[in-house]
């Protein structure tokens, strides 16, 4: 009886081993990567509610809420080869009010030396809701980053109050996402590492990325809150905001 069990289990083990070996079995090693996002206004850490900041057009503002979605992370190595992080695990909601949301850890990345990182801002609607984007629904929903009427994500939720020559402490509100096929506000941003990033099973590198809130108003385009302080489904201004945002990220340490 005992012998039969032993023999059976041996055969079973052999089968498993053979099966395992039949798949591609290169000696690829894996490592992890940590990315820390810091939201700044110019040089200073963003402070919600308590600080008032000067902006272009002689306006001042303070921020009550800043949230945005980062997705589709791709690393490019020294040879130009790309490592595409699994899309289903690639959606992150950075929320200024939740410090731990600003530190993300990517796991099981091919060990290699990388020279740049590409991040998506928002959700690529050509893939929506496939590739796991749908499993991001509860996270987005809990933090108010989902529209109810359109089954779409808010890529950016940015709110506060502002003062201009005409108004004092008036609310402003930017809710930016994609709408239908014609208003695609998803953007991809490629950032070069300051020095080649070596990633191995024994070394988990950290990358610090700054996001400069000021640039939302003022990069490619100059936006005045006194011109428009409520920007949501807006085919003219929403694309300007995300174009500005492509200039707002900067790697400061790796």
């Amino acid at each position: 009886m005992m012998k039969t069990i032993k023999q059976t289990s041996l055969i079973l083990m052999l089968c498993i081993v053979l099966n395992a070996c039949s798949s591609d079995n290169t000696n690829q090693e894996f490592g992890d990567l940590e990315i820390n996002f810091t939201n700044l206004v110019g040089e200073n850490n963003l402070e919600l509610n308590t600080e008032t900041y000067a902006k272009n057009g002689n306006e001042t503002y303070s921020v009550s809420e800043l949230k945005y979605i980062i997705s589709n992370i791709v690393l490019t190595d020294t040879e130009g080869n790309q490592f595409v992080y699994p899309q289903g695990d690639s959606y992150f909601l950075i929320n200024e009010a939740i410090p731990q949301s600003q530190n993300i850890k990517l796991e099981n990345i091919n060990a290699n030396t990388y020279t740049s990182i590409t991040i998506g801002f928002g959700v690529d609607q050509s893939k929506y809701p496939l590739n796991g984007v749908d499993n991001f629904v509860p996270t987005a929903e809990d933090q108010g980053m989902l529209w109810a009427w359109s089954a779409g994500y808010k890529f950016l939720k940015f709110e506060g109050i502002y003062t201009s020559s005409n108004v004092t402490d008036k609310p402003f509100l930017f809710h930016i996402g994609s709408h239908g096929q014609n208003l695609d506000n998803y953007r991809e941003i490629t950032l070069n590492f300051l020095q080649p990033l070596a990633l191995s099973p024994s070394k988990t590198p950290e990358v610090n990325i700054n996001f400069d809130v000021q640039k939302i108003f003022n990069a490619d385009f100059d936006l005045l809150l006194s011109d428009k302080d409520d920007i949501q489904i807006d085919p003219e201004n929403a694309p300007k905001i995300v174009d500005n945002i492509t200039k707002a990220f900067e790697i400061v340490l790796n």
């Binding site: 929506y128 809701p129 496939l130 629904v137 109810a148 089954a151 779409g152």
Partner: peptide, 22 residues
């Protein structure tokens, strides 16, 4: 307002005057 059939349930489930749920 919805561009993929798989995403459609979000709208009635979360709309206040429909199913009003998360």
């Amino acid at each position: 307002s919805v561009s993929h059939l798989d995403a459609q349930p979000v709208v009635p489930i979360t709309t206040e005057f429909e199913m009003n749920e998360s």
